[in-house]
Design a binder for these strands. Structure first.
Lengths: 214, 214
DNA sequence: TGCATTAATGACTTAAAAGTCATTAATTAT
DNA sequence: ATAATTAATGACTTTTAAGTCATTAATGCA
């Protein structure tokens, strides 16, 4: 062993990130009120008092957690969506597949659950998420739909509602998994959902017969 | 005034319902941990101690709230869905319109939000909701889709995922309203969503051209 | 009409977790 | 090497809301 065996280290720059990462897990598991800072500290490998070196209050930490979860994922989504100029029939499957991947790769599901659950207690966070995450994403997709409508590719109708028709089932499946994951193994597969729903939302559930009725 | 001016009344049968109703509001607004029993008592017009005459603990009350929210809505849904034997092309719009009505008439949105938000802290409630609400509803719809597939009305594919394609956007719009209602007035209209998505999920977003490509 | 029952209460105790701070020691600068 | 700085801590106080209970009085019954 080395001669010195320090009881702790000073890591001014690394610590905040570690704390936020630990806090994300704890908040995601227990919700805001249910999360214990002692538990966050334990998982971050610091004392509870150390949290207060970097964050004023529990609310501050929560805000940092939710805000930190926004930036990276958001860019991925927007870049994917806007970079390509292909027919809507190709775009939709790609977007849904990318969404499915994102939901399995990142903490997005947990963060969405938190935002939904705590929106009343943190109207400022609800606003941030609405303005910085939901509106941009839905906006991009709405724009793509509107463009496709202008090209005559997509049927008329409110493009925003169309966007929800595209995204809704993916988000629903995601929340289903997040909510009932502890309770059943019979969870919808996100990749399968993305693939099948892309087909459905593009071509519809109905089998088109030649004649009309009967 | 009458001669007697009683400080309180004994209402053994009415009280539990009133308490549960008040508690639903408070839990819906603040989540489980954030809800204060003093506030529940205030809204129910009783003292906090009176709550403990009818419910052992806060958790017990929460369970009663969530359970009480199940029964009436569930029956409405199942009856609507199963009672009619019409083509899927007629069924889907009706189901979605009924769902939209239910979301605007009942506390369903608030309860769903609560179940999503607290599922980790109350695995037993998550199980109850999964077994008694979600599985039956999705099951009924899945059955209807499968029946329509057998009749050749609906395209092949996992009928459960199809069911999510039908329901997802409605639930998404509902949670959007529930989550961001405080923050914006630009909320998706549930009736419009039901109508347009019924069209979309049946016939698809794409406009069908005669030829293939170009 | 008064007696027994018990719903309901107000004032209290308890519990748990947020938040504080004087002190310690790892690091940085001289 | 040594001093100055400050990240980090352990032990503490504070706060808040759940939960308890002896007492009160509304109601049903004899």
């Amino acid at each position: 062993m080395t001669r010195t065996d320090p009881k702790w280290q000073r890591r001014k720059t690394a610590r905040p990130g570690e704390i936020v990462a630990a806090a994300l897990d704890v908040f995601a598991e227990n919700g805001f009120a249910g999360a214990k800072l002692e538990e966050v500290a334990r998982r971050a490998g610091v004392s509870k008092a150390a949290l207060y070196v970097y964050f004023e209050t529990k609310e501050d930490l929560f805000r940092a957690v939710v805000r930190s979860a926004i930036a990276p994922d958001l860019d991925t989504i927007k870049n994917t969506a806007e970079s390509l100029d292909v027919p809507f029939a190709m775009l939709a499957p790609m977007l849904l597949a990318n969404g499915a991947a994102l939901m399995q790769t990142t903490k997005l599901p947990a963060v969405v659950k938190m935002v939904v659950g705590e929106s009343r207690n943190f109207p400022d966070l609800a606003r941030i998420w609405h303005d910085d995450v939901v509106t941009p994403i839905v906006g991009v997709l709405t724009g793509l739909v509107a463009r496709a409508q202008a090209r005559g590719e997509v049927s008329p109708g409110d493009p925003r509602l169309h966007a929800i028709s595209v995204l809704g089932p993916m988000l629903m499946a995601m929340l289903f998994r997040e909510t009932f994951g502890q309770v059943t193994d019979d969870l919808p597969d996100l990749n399968a959902m993305a693939k099948q729903h892309a087909e459905t939302v593009l071509h519809g559930l109905l089998i088109h017969t030649e004649g009309g009725k009967s």
